[in-house]
Amino acid sequence: MSTLLSVLSPRARLLRRIRERAIELVLFLAALSSVAVTAGIVGVLAYESYGFFQHVPLGDFLTDTQWTPLFDDAHYGILPLLTGTLVTTVIALLVAIPLGTVIAIYLSEYAPYRVREVAKPVLEMLSGVPTVVYGYFALLFVTPLLQKIFPSLPGFSMLSAGLVMGIMIIPYVSSLSEDAIQAVPMQLREGSYAMGASRLRTALSVVIPAALSGVAAAYVLAMSRAVGETMVVAIAAGMQPNLTLNPMEPAATITTYIVQVSLGDLPHGSIGYQTIFAAGFTLLLLTLAFNIVGQMLKRRFRQAY
């Protein structure tokens, strides 16, 4: 077909084609390995959870109000862990969503170029700090600070863990929201200005509605991140399962329960060992649901223009 290829002997051409296919196959296998990881995760969690649900009926798991798998009088109700997860996540979102959204609007609609160039990497560092360091900060800096305002606050509390977690996930909200806001075409803004609207009016009534699905995706993905966060809560919120919605109390989340059990020494195959997989499976399903919703929203904002 080309003069250059005809320089090669048929044998060399064949070898070359084989090599090309072999390389493609190797690269394909590498890509497929990511599917194997997922299969491994789902397989292990499902297998061990199956063992767990042989002992504990699903109804008890979902409705029992106590989680005491390691006591003599064992109860296996996931609710206390769910409320702990819920409270810390809600506090974190109450911090991260307003701050992250305001930052995103400010950086994309108002900030001068230089401010943006400096602020974005610094903000990204917020999510680069190891979570164990945030845990230390929550326990030994934020909690004592809060105790000056609320003297009755115990040494471990969901409030302090949630607040710090909220700061930690600001970049998740702000950077993805900003991407969505940047993707809104300039003409929409200009149309709004032409009608005499102010910058703020344009941002709130034109830009944000146009970028809504992207901004919503940012919220949902931040939520998934907060649900799966472990170390901040494990260090600052205590690890005792506690069925309460009061943020001033210590409590365990799904993740901290797994940490607590892992720190001890449970024999492989025991029901105590299986509980962490049942808890982990619940966590995986929760975050997976959030991620799928988040990705659907994200795809919608990508297609809009």
Binding site: V37, G40, I41, V227, T230, T255, I258, Q295
Partner: peptide, 25 residues
């Protein structure tokens, strides 16, 4: 398509779940 969806979801799996997978596997 499966590989791509899979990678997007893997990126959102909490780190502790990887720990559980490693423990079992």
């Amino acid at each position: 398509d499966i590989i791509e969806i899979n990678i997007a979801n893997l990126a959102g799996v909490p780190s502790i779940v990887y720990g559980l997978m490693a423990l079992g596997l």
